[in-house]
């Protein structure tokens, strides 16, 4: 017989204290970022500091505001209020400077998928104003690093979902940005390819690059990242170095504890009696 334990009393969701003025050596500083969609508040006053050279994970349940936050950070979505500084440059008042050091992988937006893999990289490089020789050299390196040799002559529209992610990450890296913002980079990427991407990103972080990536896979974030921020319902619940946030538990446990998930499956008794 299973032993039922009394449920622990739900803790009040903690809210982080607002951060002060951003320091100078931050790759990314977010202050008071807010976005409303009609009556829904998608992102509610998010403050976040991402130091240089770290591998920052951004986790949250579905609909927590991860994608919205990252879209505002990368200049794809205008915030209602708040500022985003990338290397000290405001994304919304000085976009040319800010975006020159920013590489973006948005979630579920289309790509120019009638181009072949190599053409796609050349397109991305030229948009960033790189000269042809540089683009060609970097494209060759990236294609090799991501194991896309076989795909470089095929149309992006014919790629599998994982390969699309990989080529998009490659395109985001081609202008050698200082900050990479990747929204769900490992979604539908097979484990071997994911490891490949992680290796490339780790190398990027080792030489001083900064990676901010969102995922709903706690295991992966816990394994890969050295910093983590947990977001739910548009609010940041915890942020900082992994060990501090985890506090001895696993990320999954900590996340469930903070976000108050794991609600009992009540009122779905019909699910337990199978129809025959």
């Amino acid at each position: 017989m299973p032993v039922f334990e009394p449920e622990p009393a739900p803790r009040a969701a903690p809210t982080l204290a607002p951060l002060g003025e951003p320091a100078g050596d931050l790759a990314l500083a977010i202050r008071g970022l807010t976005k409303h969609f009609g009556s829904v508040t998608a992102v509610d006053g998010v403050d976040l500091d991402v130091p240089r050279g770290c591998f920052y994970g951004f986790v949250g349940p579905n609909g927590a505001g991860k994608t919205t936050t990252l879209a505002m950070v990368t200049g794809l979505l205008r915030p209602d209020s708040g500022t985003v500084l990338i290397d000290g440059a405001d994304v919304w008042t000085d976009p040319a400077t800010a975006k020159s050091s920013l590489g973006v992988l948005p979630d579920r937006l289309r790509l120019f998928d009638r181009l072949t893999g190599t053409e796609f990289l050349h397109h991305a490089g030229a948009l960033h104003g790189l000269d042809r020789a540089t683009v060609a050299r970097r494209a060759a390196d990236l294609v090799q690093a991501f194991g896309l040799e076989s795909a470089s002559r095929r149309f992006v529209s014919d790629f599998s979902a994982g390969m699309v992610k990989k080529i998009a990450i490659a395109a985001a890296m081609i202008h050698s940005p200082r900050l990479l913002v990747l929204d769900e980079p490992f979604e539908s990427v097979d484990p071997v390819s994911a490891q490949l991407v992680i290796d490339v990103l780790k190398k990027f972080a080792q030489v001083g690059g900064t990676v901010l990536l969102s995922s709903h896979s706690m295991d992966l974030i816990e394994r890969v990242c050295d910093n983590v921020a947990i977001i739910a319902e548009g609010r940041l619940l915890a942020a900082g170095p992994m060990s501090e946030v985890l506090d001895g538990t696993t990320l999954e446990d900590r996340f469930v504890e903070l976000a108050g998930g794991a609600t009992a499956v009540e009122g779905m008794e019909w699910l337990q009696s199978f129809s025959d």
Binding site: E119, A126, V135, R137
Partner: peptide
């Protein structure tokens, strides 16, 4: 070849306008 750019991207200058031109021609063809 390292300096080689594929398709239309080799024929237009490697600038934003050039990239969009190359992309447009590619799309018109494909």
């Amino acid at each position: 070849v390292a300096r080689h750019a594929p398709g239309w991207f080799g024929r237009t200058p490697s600038t934003p306008a050039g990239a969009i031109t190359a992309r447009s021609f590619t799309y018109w063809a494909r």
